[in-house]
Design a protein around this nucleic acid. Structure first.
Lengths: 295, 295
DNA sequence: ATAGGGGTATTCACGGCTGAATAGGATCGA
DNA sequence: TCGATCCTATTCAGCCGTGAATACCCCTAT
């Protein structure tokens, strides 16, 4: 990992198509650009540019890398923006939760919260990446699993229960699986992206390696849409399943996973009164909501 | 915009807490690190570190910037990963669309597509950032707006129509707004995050600057949940509104925005047969689905 | 053919960045 | 109180990366 600045040169050459014009743009000399490029090609052990008579052209590998570098450039710009932007701490609280938790638990609670605390504005950020707190894109997170980082603190609110579900139309067509092995002859709805690594998802994938995958997405709510169209079987927490019509649980105790739900915040924020009020309200309400759930 | 490499130094000092140990980690000398830090502080015109007796500590501004720099570091790592990873092209097609389009249009079409093309696996990525194609996290995007980048090509599929909607329970309680000005006495459901800048969202914000914001989120489907609980008024495309019960349109022609829907892909990909099949199927089906929509 | 305008590769003097050395401040424990 | 041990700031010789200059390659228009 050395010299990020070289990437700036890659970007310029990729954009302008020649060392000379890249040098003009970067306000350095042409030999310098040339050297930097060969240097980074050696470091990455990959040929990024093809030397053509009228300049430098991206190779296939180079194209792939250049698109990544472009993002790095955007991030560099964002840094400068952040530096120039004045420090703001709004009286607005940003809460983040996964799609499913937000849909079934947080959104219904939020309107109640607003009635009791009309002066607090709450913004709900749907996201499955737990980096959001550290990035300061959110102030409070409701997540599966304990704080993984020591700048975060939190409180365990209870458990969510996951089961495997199918729509009546699917089950009528394909029959009801009775044992985990039966899943290999079934069709499932798969999770990808940020939610691909959740334990309940991994279990299904490992126990039904031969099952056909009919639909895969990073969005639980969209998976539920596919579920209710009878596309396949799907892992679902009971708090989402109980509101769906004509969907029933399969495999019962053979597929039964419990996960801990936590409410988290950054250490620095925990004593701010606005944060505190959301933290306490949401914590208590979700805690009792989780207790009411079927197991 | 100069010398991205300085950010690497910022990161090291932020992590280690002193010039000396950062120098050790970066395998350069302590004065070099010190110079680079003061240099970038001057460039950004911001004090990133506080000089404390036992080293350098991030200031508040520094903390904000450091978290951005960390992302740049992740991106740098990703570049190196990309460079080392062998070129792979799976037979899986990744499609990306916004939450709402995915929910109402793409998911229903996907099961049909699978029946006609059982050999093609399609993965659906829900996202509102249009960078996904450039990042190569997805192969095909269905988006609002034309390709903004010349490595992308696409085809216009038609228009979606946006209106302002309220739930019966809300309208009974608060009355029906008749003119745009009336909105200032109403409560609205607001879009934040990636979808905050969409034209239909901006229109509402500008035309109802005094309206109370009852709920704000980056997820349309969660906003719809709030809408159906009668929390407030909300901007919605007709393809989502038509499936909601007890929700009716307000302001009629006074709030009426049309946006173009496009299907996009990267130039290099457009001739791959697998991509082609998804592109054609989705393009045609969405095109005729959009034509059937109420205006 | 040939001149001219695009480009890259190579050379070499030089200026700026680097690092070793050093001075000096703060804290801690004997 | 003093030495040890962290740390930063400053200095200055030396080296490395830079840029002007140049050779040369390729293409095109005259």
């Amino acid at each position: 990992m050395s010299n990020w600045d070289d990437y700036r040169f890659v970007l310029a050459v990729a954009e302008t198509g020649s060392l000379t014009s890249a040098a003009r743009q970067l306000k350095v000399s042409q030999p310098t650009v040339g050297r930097r490029i060969t240097e980074i090609e050696q470091r990455l052990e990959a040929r990024l540019f093809e030397r053509v008579p009228d300049g430098y052209r991206l190779t296939d590998a180079g194209t792939r890398i250049a698109s990544q570098v472009r993002l790095m450039g955007l991030q560099a710009e964002r840094i400068e923006m952040t530096a120039r932007a004045p420090e703001t701490r709004s009286d607005r609280v940003c809460l983040t939760a996964s799609e499913g938790i937000a849909h079934a638990i947080v959104t219904p609670l939020l309107s109640q919260f607003r009635i009791e605390n009309p002066e607090v504005e709450v913004d709900l950020l749907i996201s499955n990446r737990s980096a959001d707190l550290l990035r300061r894109e959110a102030d409070i997170a409701i997540r599966i699993g304990a704080p993984g980082n020591d700048t975060l603190i939190g409180r365990r609110l209870g458990q969510a229960h996951f089961g495997l579900f199918g729509h009546d139309s699917y089950l009528a067509r394909r029959g009801m699986p009775l044992m985990p092995d039966d899943l290999n002859a079934h069709t499932i709805i798969e999770s990808t992206g940020d939610i691909a690594g959740l334990p309940q998802v991994v279990w299904l994938r490992e126990n039904a390696p031969k099952a056909e995958i009919a639909y895969s997405s990073n969005s639980i709510l969209n998976q539920m849409q596919a579920l209710s169209m009878g596309v396949g079987l799907m892992t679902l927490p009971t708090y989402l399943a109980e509101d769906m019509s004509r969907v029933r649980r399969v495999l019962g105790d053979h597929y039964n996973r419990d996960v801990d739900i936590w409410i988290l915040t950054e250490k620095r924020l925990k004593d701010e009164p606005v944060i505190r009020s959301v933290l306490d309200f949401m914590g208590n309400e979700i805690q009792s909501a989780l207790k009411r759930l079927p197991v």
